[in-house]
């Protein structure tokens, strides 16, 4: 009756795809999108270095359906990355105590997202002017 034989359950190899962890896996992959976008930036930079023809080809490629879809995906990835990044931010710092009370994590997240919107907006306005 008192036999002890603990049963160890194996973690599923596909745990990262389960409903519970899907959001986390998507968040991680959005970060891979950041690197893919880095490669696009590098290609554009290099096209300018190589001269007018290469630059024209790069700009032409940007208007192809493939490039547009890619950039829509990258835009979604950047948005997801930015949102989740600032949701995680308050977890990485000590509890912020102001006037004897802890600042809610939501406040920190919202302030950082506001700052990010300003930064991105500044880039867009700078490019348009």
């Amino acid at each position: 009756m008192s036999e002890r034989r603990p049963y160890v359950r194996r973690q599923s190899r596909l745990w990262w795809a389960s409903r519970t962890y899907r959001g986390y896996t998507l968040r991680e992959l959005s970060g891979v999108g950041v690197a893919v976008y880095g490669a696009v930036l590098l290609a554009g930079l290099d096209s300018v270095r190589r001269g007018p023809d290469a630059y024209a080809a790069f700009v032409g490629w940007l208007s192809t359906p493939v490039a547009i879809v890619l950039h829509l995906v990258l835009l979604a990835a950047m948005l997801l990355h930015g949102l989740t990044w600032f949701q995680t931010l308050p977890k990485t710092m000590p509890r912020l105590i102001v006037g004897g009370q802890a600042v809610p994590q939501k406040t920190i997240t919202n302030a950082a997202i506001g700052l990010a919107m300003l930064c991105s907006l500044a880039l867009v306005i700078g490019a348009l002017s």
Binding site: T20, Y21, Y24, E28, Q87, T88, K91, T92
Partner: peptide, 8 residues
């Protein structure tokens, strides 16, 4: 830890 966050 990979900051999954579900513990909280």
């Amino acid at each position: 830890c990979t900051a999954v966050g579900l513990c909280s």
